[in-house]
Structure formats: C-alpha cells, structure tokens
Design a protein around this nucleic acid. Structure first.
Lengths: 337, 337
DNA sequence: CCCGCTAACTAAAACGAATTTGTAAACTTT
DNA sequence: AAAGTTTACAAATTCGTTTTAGTTAGCGGG
C-alpha cells in the first residue's frame, strides 16, 4: 500500500511538485501554468487516483476542513437529529464533523474542547454545559469560530441559535389558560442553564399575564443527577400528590417520557383527568395513546442556521455575534388541545 | 494566538527539540536523558500548557488516533446508541471517532470511506451497504483494520460483530408457536443485506422445525425506498387484508414503529386480535399501550466487542478475522407473551 | 597520553503538502 | 542591441513532529 503523493505525480509528469500543487488547487491560471501542462497534470492525477494527504495539507495551511460538534448526548433524539442535520449540511461544503457528547459534564466538555483544538478543527458548534464560559471565551479569544446551540451564556458575546424557549412556553401556557386551565403544573430539571431558566420564566410570566398566581407547589424540579428510578418516583409523586393539577407541562423531552411512564403506572387518564404537554417532540409522543401534545423544536432550522453562521465566520474570518431565537411549534394532539 | 510548539519548549529549556520529544513521549530512559533534565522539561511543558499538534504528529507517524465509524443513520435509535458506546470506548483509549451516515446509499458510503482514508483514520467500524464489498476489500488489502457491524459479507474475510439474527428470530418464532400461534406473519424490508436474509431464514426455518407450512401471503416486504406514507399503506394493507394473522413479527425497529401507527389507525387490538413483536427494542415499545414485546440487540456488547477487536488489530497490526454473533434478548411485554 | 567506550544529547532528515522566492528563456521596448 | 518585462516553471522553505544518525565530553584501560 503505497499512497502516492504529489511528488510521484510531479515525477511522472516531469515537472516540479509546486506546479502540480498549483494545478491541483486551481491556481494554474493565476500561476500562469500553460493550459496543456495543466490538463496533462489534472488528467494524470485523476488517472492515478491521487488523493491529497489531509494531514500534510492541514499542517501547512492550518485548515483541516473539519468541524467540531459538541452535544449533550449523541444518542439522544434531539441531538442525534441535530447531528444529522449538521453532518448533512457540512457535507455540502465538504466539511467533516467530529462529534462528541458531554453528558452535561463540564469536565468532560473541557476535555473535548481541548481535544478538538489539538485536532485543529476549523470551527465549533457547542451545546455548552454549566461553567464552560471561560473555555468558550478562550476559544473565541483565540479567533476560533464558535456557534452555541440549545443554550448560551448571557454574559458572553457569542453566536448562538436555539429555539425561543421563553416564547414557546409562554404561548403554550397562555393557550392552556385560554382552554380554561388555571392549575397548571410544570416539571423541570435543576440545570441552571439559560434555556431551562427561560422556560421557567415563560411559565411564570404567562401565569402572571393571565393573572393566575404562581404556586411553587405546582412546580417539581428533578435533579439532573437523579437516577432513572428516583426521577420516576419524584415525577409520580408530583402527579399523584399535592394540589390538583389540571394540566402539566414537562419542560424537557426526557421529563415528558418519564411523565408518560408515570401515567401508565398511576393509570391517570389523559386528557380527562389532566392535560399533558411536553417540550420537544418525539416519535413516542406521536404514537402514544393518547397522542401527546408537544412543543417541537425546529431542529433542522437550528442545525442549518448554526452551520450557516459558522461557515460564514470561517470564510470571512470575522466575528459575527449572531443571535437567533427560532420559533417552536406546538404540535397539538390528544393529550392537550 | 501563537500555539507553542516543541521548538519553543526546547528553546526555553535550552535543549534540542529531539530531547523534548523524547521526554514527552516517555522515551527519556530509553534515550538516556538525565533525570533532572527530563523532569525540567516535563515541568516546563506542563507549565506552558503545551499540546502537541496532532496533524504534524499524524503526518510523521502515520497514526492519527482517530477512528472512522460509518453507520446507516446517526439519528436512528440503534445506531445512535451504538455510536455512543463506541465513542465512550474510544475515549478510554484516547481515540477520537469520526462518525458518518450512509443512509444506506452505496455511493455515499464509498465517498465516506474515501474521506476517512484521506483523513488517515487508524481503523474503521463500518455498517456496510449493498455493493460495498470491493471498497472494504481494498481497505483490508491496504492493511487497514476494519470491523463490520450489524451486517457483513459472507464472501469477505473480515472481522464482524452483530446480533445473531438467525437464532434470535428462530427462537422468537418458535416461542410464538409454543404459545399456540400458527399463522405468523412477518414484515420485512427489501434490502438484500445478510442480516435481513438471516432474519428471514430464521423465520422460515422455525416454521419448518415446527412443521408449519411457509405461506408467502404471510410475508410483506416493504421497499426500502418507499416513502413513509407508502410504507404505512403497505403495512396497513397487510395487517388488515389477506389471510388472518395471529401474530406478526416486524423485522426491524423502523417497521415495528410503522406497525404501531397502523394499529392505531386500524384500531387493532393487540394482543387480543393479534400478537405483535418487533426486532430491535426502543423506548416507544416500552411505553406503548399495550407495551410491545421486542427483540433487543445487545448494543453495548456489539460496540464494545467491535472496539476491542479493532483496537487489538491496530495495536498488533495483525489481521484477526474475528466473527462474533451475539445473542439477542427477547424483552417480553404485553403485546406477545 | 592515546584509544575506545559510554552517557547524554544534538543535528538533520523525513512526513506531504502549500507557498515564497528564484530563474532561464522568450519577448518587448527603446 | 542592450535593458527590461513576461512567461512558465522549478528550487527551496515551511508547517510541527518523530526518529535516525551522529557528536561531544568524560572516563577507564593500557
């Protein structure tokens, strides 16, 4: 297995490596290489099946044509789809993507950033974890193009693109109120990232706007670190006990699925006994009986927008500082009309 | 932003780059670098936060410490989980993973292999598509470590690891027969990859072993290229029309989910009117009402085994030709006991 | 006191491209 | 026809490492 290099081609063509390089990089004209020679080289390269060594190229140019994508968990529905969109988009522009999962673990996230840096990726799409500001700031300070997705840091000047968490929840709650519900519960997670905070704000503000008092007994916060069983227990306890809830909004897809399990266990009738809405759509919600109303994130749009911003920044070399809050879409199904 | 190189360290330490390289690569002793100097260099490197340039290293050594993972679709449940396991496993050994999705498109798969080769990955884990033999053969001939997962080519000497499709289906069908079912249908897809063929063989042979005649009216094959709607229609038509089926086995997760949608539409009572089993487990099956019996693939085991084989081959440089058929696990739920 | 040996490093080549600088020949210009 | 300018390439350097092949100083032995 002898991978052939530019040198081999040069030799076979009886020219210098520089000439070959120029031709193969489309700089033939600029470097006034004669047309005949250029054609000859192109043909030879194709014929021999020449493929440039990306490492060498990257070393020399500092560009690897590789992007780093850091998500919370690649096997998660939302992030898996996001990764898919980004991969497809990247392919269009001839970029490869290095994915990695943080598990929402800051230390791991830091390591991943380091690793991507070592590999000299040209740009980053990151779902940040708590406490990652400094690292991201460093990245930006170093001139690396970065786009945050799903969450961001309010005090950091970065590009970000995510669903409009506040408005999505605000509108959904308002809609529920419009349907006559007043005792509306929420189940959330104790991550202090801005996306969750905004969802909570959306909830509170919607109640306020509808002149419904906020009652903390109607809010259940599940520790992120809780085991599956513990979380299930907490959700079940919430649904069953305490003040009556006419409707419950689960603020993440994961929580919504836990909620479904509880329904089954508690034999709660949805929507008769309680309306049910989850953030983030999922096949499960569509297929469940009753089907579940969900607030779908515009995954494709998020991925595409993030890529557009990133590639633009890579190309131009200029900091952009684009902020995109994309509208969510409430997919109304049987569990809450 | 000046990333510091080995040269900077050498300069600051007043030694040659070779010495620094030796020390940093743990060859200090072998190269009889004095202990004091070694310590000094190590400390300096740490203090300056030196991170080697992986491109340069890769160029020089031919090793990139990066693995290529080609799956059918990264946003698919099974492959997403597989990717996760492999990523985790890779991390343990300090490898990074480049993922890509083929969409079961051979041309795309070929391109991906080419791209991974350009990037000089050290090894490949591939979910092959039809017609990819030649490319994989070339890879192997070029001495690249390769492990196939989920499917393989019977006529190609390669490593592979996947669930034991034949036995899994055989046992499941046999179990159904044991429960008194004789009219057992299957829904499959028209991919001629060996995994699907073996699932079908498992079905046929199980019937034969139980002396139940094989009836092609009980088999419905969905074209892979069919649109979602068309596929739904075909499945619904099958479930509704033709001879009565006491039980139906969906040979992939995707088909099973289509099946669920049809149940809903046709208002079929499972398991009373018909038992329902799907290959490949999924949250949906667990949460569905009734919950769905599924044949779970040992994803973790598959990923881990594949990685073990791959890393072993990378380390030793020897072709291994390991064949692993791992047992599936029938998760019995309400839809079929 | 010279030779050989070893300890402890260093110099230099190599990896494969991209790119800057150089140069011979042909062609203009005056 | 001498000087300058193009044309059309080639030589050499560079990117940051690893690795091979030295080199030097110190020491013991004869």
């Amino acid at each position: 297995m002898k991978k052939l290099s530019i040198k081999d081609i040069a030799q076979k063509a009886g020219v210098s490596t520089a000439t070959v390089s120029f031709v193969l990089n489309g700089k033939a004209e600029e470097m006034r290489i004669s047309d005949t020679l250029a054609k000859k080289i192109t043909k030879l390269a194709k014929q021999l099946g020449y493929q440039p060594n990306q490492l060498a190229r990257g070393l020399r140019t500092g560009k690897t044509h590789t992007l780093g994508l850091i998500v919370e968990n690649i096997s998660n529905h939302f992030f898996g789809n996001l990764a898919k969109v980004i991969e497809d988009e990247a392919k269009k522009y001839n970029y490869k993507v290095l994915y990695c999962s943080t598990e929402n673990n800051t230390l791991k996230a830091k390591e991943l950033i380091q690793m991507l840096q070592d590999r000299q990726v040209d740009g980053y799409i990151i779902t940040p974890t708590e406490g990652l500001e400094a690292d991201i700031e460093k990245l930006i300070a170093a001139g690396k193009p970065v786009v945050l997705v799903d969450r961001y840091f309010a005090n950091l000047a970065t590009n970000y693109v995510l669903v409009d968490n506040y408005k999505s929840v605000f509108d959904t709650i308002t809609r529920l109120v419009g349907r006559g519900f007043t005792q509306i519960g929420v189940v959330t997670v104790d991550l202090s990232m801005i996306n969750m905070e905004q969802r909570m704000s959306g909830y509170k503000d919607a109640l306020k706007a509808s002149k419904i008092p906020y009652r903390k007994e109607l809010v259940r916060t599940i520790p992120f670190e809780a085991s599956r069983e513990k979380a299930l227990e907490l959700v079940a306890d919430f649904l069953e006990g305490g003040p009556k809830k006419e409707a419950v909004f689960f603020l993440t897809n994961y929580l919504g699925i836990l909620g479904l399990e509880c329904l089954k266990k508690l034999k709660l009738k949805v929507p008769d006994q309680m309306a049910f809405v989850s953030f983030d759509d999922h096949d499960i919600f569509r297929l469940h009986t009753p089907s579940i109303t969900a607030l779908a994130q515009p995954v494709e749009d998020i991925g595409r927008t993030a890529m557009t911003i990133l590639l633009e920044e890579i190309k131009s070399g200029l900091k952009n500082n684009a902020h995109h809050l994309l509208p969510g879409e409430l997919v109304v199904r049987e569990s809450a009309l």
